[in-house]
Amino acid sequence: MRDALRESVDSPEEGSDDQHHVVLGKLTSPYGVKGWLKVYSYTSPMDGILDYPEWQLRLDGKIVTRRVSQGRRQGKGLVACLEGMTSRESAEQWAGAEILLPKDALPRLAPGEYYWHQLEGLRVVTREDVDLGRVSYLFETGANDVLVVRGDAKALDDKERLLPFLPDQVVLEVDLDAETMTVDWDPDF
């Protein structure tokens, strides 16, 4: 999988549908006195967020676009300086803002590769057509990514299952158009 991205579910602007954006991360707090901000990144690798030269920032329902002047690793995290932010006070105004990116700005993936936001929400069925629920979210273990599948009213039960994202072993087919994922998985596990 490429960047691990979380899809935003809120509508930021009147008449705007946030199905067209992913949330790359958020600005957490000012860093220093020259307008830098600490960045919490949802991308994998963490500093992949700095590959995008322009960010859309959403705070209190407003969205503005800012160019990334500079960005770097700082300790265990990231910091960035955005165009127009030159003081601690100007940076403080954006603490807590989400960093958005239009989905069409994401790099194209090879066949069989998916962004996490594409998998979240897919209906998961076994090859015997047993409905296990929907992909709620994913997480990394170091060995492989893991799908968290939550049962719902249409599913076999309301259990939460953890399935390894192992193409051709556990995950047999992903059909984004049909919004389904077929898996080789024992429903009792």
Rank of each mutant, 00 (worst) to 15 (best):
D3T: 03
D3G: 07
D3F: 12
A4W: 11
A4F: 13
R6E: 15
S8W: 10
D10T: 10
E13A: 04
E14F: 08
G15N: 03
D17K: 02
Q19L: 15
V22Q: 02
L24C: 03
K26R: 11
K26F: 03
K26L: 02
L27I: 03
T28R: 06
V33L: 14
K34E: 15
K38P: 00
P45L: 00
P45D: 01
M46N: 07
D47S: 05
D47R: 00
G48A: 12
D51H: 15
W55Y: 08
L57C: 01
R58E: 08
R58Y: 00
D60Y: 09
G61M: 00
K62N: 10
R73Q: 08
K76S: 11
C81Y: 07
T86S: 09
S90A: 12
S90P: 01
G96Q: 12
A97T: 00
E98G: 00
E98H: 00
I99A: 03
I99Y: 02
I99L: 09
R108F: 02
L109I: 03
P111I: 06
G112I: 00
G112D: 07
E113C: 07
Y115E: 02
Y115P: 10
Y115C: 07
V124W: 10
T126G: 10
G133S: 11
F139S: 08
E140G: 14
A143G: 13
N144T: 15
V146T: 11
V149C: 05
G151M: 13
K154Q: 15
L156P: 14
D158C: 04
D158T: 12
D158N: 12
K159N: 12
K159G: 07
L163C: 11
P164K: 15
V171G: 05
D175C: 14
E179F: 03
M181I: 09
P187M: 04
